[in-house]
Write a protein that binds this DNA or RNA. Structure first.
Lengths: 157, 157
DNA sequence: TAATGACAGACTAATTTGGTCTGCGATAAA
DNA sequence: TTTATCGCAGACCAAATTAGTCTGTCATTA
């Protein structure tokens, strides 16, 4: 629960790799799949979705493959997530999945949960695949709550 | 993906209800299940987990039921989540689920994802079930990214 | 024109989640 | 002291989601 799917993991790994490519250089499914030990067919599907979403550019030919279509800074983790898995929502009444929620009329916790969700989406949108491949220090202020909130995270879970 | 389970939804609804009870007043599984149209047996299990986790107090008797064991302010959504579903992690390598990740040695996106996760956990810890039942205005600064970050959320997903 | 690599979708397997069924144990009121 | 109420416990099944497989087509270029 609250977990990213493997397809999203695969997408992020592949995009991170492509973000480090030279201009004009392409990566193909076979080599990415081999590098990360991902089943080739499943990575192929993931790449196709990223392509359809306009995040990457396909070069369908021998010596072809994929390259980023946008600057790495402009590809957010949220965009990747939506491209691969569709709309995101921590509760199904907020992502269009659940058309007939049994608790709809009695539910009095929807509003705060949606706010919680907005925060999560905000973070996902604020984190680009460029930052994925950079050292933690660079991320300060974006994904590290301690600097934003002025206090460290002491997670007691 | 990234979705709360129904068991967690049920737990939050029940806890929110109990948070509004008078001192000494108890709610039993049957009445909560009826109110929210939740299968009684499944809510029973959820309540038992909350009880084992020390979040609520059981009164095993006729006219018995459950009541909060801690002040509503001290029961965080994260505690509820962990009580009902176990450790939370957006990637399985960070919650102990995945013992033999195939990408472990090549993975170069783990660190930023863990930071992302820490933020999510921080929000979940910062939101109490007391706040769940209050009007949105009260939540400003805790779960509303716009006030914390000084800019509104324009979610382009 | 053959080799490479993307495109496409049906299909199966595995895992997680949601829900059911059955019986036992504790307590207080009748 | 019996009995109805309500929590406790765990095996079990069903549905949904996720992961992975199989098979084949289409586009490009060397």
């Amino acid at each position: 629960m609250l977990k990213l799917t493997k397809k999203v993991d695969y997408a992020l790994l592949a995009l991170n790799l492509m973000a480090q490519n030279e201009k004009g250089e392409v990566s193909n499914v076979r080599e990415i799949a081999t590098l990360y030990r991902i089943p080739q067919e499943i990575l192929a599907k993931v790449m196709q979705k990223l392509s359809k979403a306009g995040l990457i550019q396909s070069h369908n030919a021998p010596k072809g493959g994929y390259s980023l279509k946008l600057p790495a800074e402009e590809i957010s983790v949220l965009k990747v997530l939506v491209a691969v898995e569709g709309p995101v929502g921590i509760v199904s009444c907020s992502d269009g999945t659940d058309k007939e929620c049994q608790q709809m009329d009695q539910c009095d916790i929807r509003s705060p949960l949606e706010r919680l969700q907005n925060n999560i989406l905000w973070f996902l949108e604020a984190l680009s695949i460029r930052e994925l491949g950079q050292e933690p220090a660079v991320l300060k202020g974006v994904t590290d709550g301690s600097s934003v909130f002025g206090q460290p995270l002491h997670h007691k879970g």
